Each structure stands twice: as C-alpha cells, then as structure tokens.
Computed example of a mutant assay.
Amino acid sequence: MHIEILVEDSSGTKLIDSLMPQIIGPQGEPHTWRFHTYKGIGHIPKNLDARADPAKRALLNQLPRVLAGHGRTPGTGAVVVVLDNDNRDCKVFLEELKAILARCNPAPRTLFRLAIEEMEAWLLGDRSALLAAYPKAKKDTLNRYVQDSICGTWELLADAIYPGGSAAIRKAGWPLPGQVKHEWAERITPHMNVEHNASHSFGKFRDGLRQLVVAEG
C-alpha cells in the first residue's frame, strides 16, 4: 500500500517518519509512504467549495483541495492526516474533518489522527527514550505531566530538558520554537519503542496505521 501522510509541521514529520519502520515495516517492504509537511495547522475554510489560496501553506486551509485531489489520483492507497488537537473538542474536530472528506467524490481512504494536546505528548509517552536522549532531564518536571492532558505540553517538555525552559524559548521567539521541537524529535525517536508508549493518542495512531495496511492485504 502507498500512503500519503499530511502533517502540520516539520517536527511532526520527523517524529512520524522515524517511527514508521517500527509501525508498518521499512519503506518499500512492502508499504510505501510520502510526507506532505505544512506550515502550521491553520483553519478549516468557511466555504469548502472556494478555491484554496496556495499562499496559505497551513494544513487545514488546504485540506479540502488536497483530499479531493487524492481521491482522483490512482495509486494512493490511503491518506493519513495527523494534527495536534491543541484545546479543541476531539469529537467535534473529528466530525469537522470527516465532513470535509464526505464532500469528496470520489473520497480517498482516509485516516484522521489527533495528538492530544500536541505531538510532544508522544515523546513524553516514552519516558525511557526521553531520558536516553536527555539524561539530565528534570524528573520532577516530568513527574508533573499527566499523559495526554491539556497542560501546555511542549512547554512542559521544554521546562524539563531545555536550558532556561519554555520561558527562554518564548523570549527568543521564532524560529527557535520550531527548531527545538525538531531537535527533540530527532534525538528522542531513535530510542523509542512504539509498542510501549503511555500516550493513548499515539496508540490510536499506531494501531490505525496497522489496521490500514492489514485491511489492504
């Protein structure tokens, strides 16, 4: 099966790409995948029939056009859309995403998955991997984290492993937040075991991918 994977930023792409071989096997053996990395999550257009502004490289802004395009493209086995939930109501958000898909004719086989609250929750879900990458991490800070909670997830991770914590990153401003998130994914994922992750949202992502390729087989 060939899978097109839509991710809202480069750190998320790095995280998922590093773990794909553990989840469904090496690239091309037998499954293949390609990433489409966007510049943020954006907003679902109010008018789903309106032509998307190509200058807006946010995932939700482009999603109606992209899903419709994949529905008309031969060779695409499935589309996987991975988004941070942030502080949205999960049920409502998923219904909004499914409504976009329902307007496609034909509609591509699509899996929507949400990271609760942010994809850094998946890194925090593997404490052993995190400590292998950052052995000096502040364990008292990590112990305050309630898995998959709405708590300022990336800020908590920063407070545990980044000199000066999230305050230093915020003070420096863009592009540092994106750079450090990419570095965290790059350093932590090589130590991760996808079979043992405390994040329920990661488990749903992993299992959803595996169900996709098994159903295809």
Rank of each mutant, 00 (worst) to 15 (best):
M1Y: 03
I3D: 04
V7G: 07
V7F: 10
S10M: 08
I16S: 06
D17G: 07
D17F: 05
S18C: 05
M20P: 03
P21Q: 08
I23F: 10
I24P: 05
I24V: 15
I24H: 06
G25Q: 11
G25F: 12
P26L: 08
P26Q: 11
G28F: 14
G28I: 14
H31S: 05
H31K: 06
H31E: 08
T32Q: 06
F35P: 02
H36N: 11
T37M: 12
I41Q: 14
G42Q: 04
G42E: 07
R51V: 13
A52N: 08
P54L: 10
P54Y: 09
A55N: 13
A55P: 00
R57D: 12
A58W: 08
L59D: 07
L60Y: 14
R65G: 11
H70S: 12
P74A: 13
P74N: 10
V80P: 00
V81P: 00
L83N: 00
L83C: 00
N85K: 06
N85I: 00
D86H: 00
D86A: 00
N87T: 07
D89G: 02
D89Q: 04
K91V: 13
L94Y: 04
E96H: 15
E96M: 13
K98Q: 15
A99T: 15
A99K: 15
A102D: 14
A107K: 06
A107G: 04
R109Q: 13
E118A: 04
A121F: 06
R127G: 06
S128R: 13
A129I: 01
A132Y: 01
A132E: 06
A133K: 11
A137H: 13
A137I: 13
S149T: 03
S149Q: 01
I150R: 00
G152F: 00
T153H: 00
W154R: 00
E155Q: 11
A158F: 12
D159A: 12
I161L: 15
I161P: 03
P163T: 03
S166C: 11
S166I: 03
I169G: 09
K171M: 05
K171C: 02
K171V: 04
P175H: 04
P177Q: 02
E183R: 08
A185F: 02
N193C: 09
N193Q: 10
E195M: 11
E195N: 14
H196M: 11
N197R: 01
F202R: 02
K204V: 11
L209T: 06
L209A: 05
Q211G: 14
L212T: 05
V213S: 08
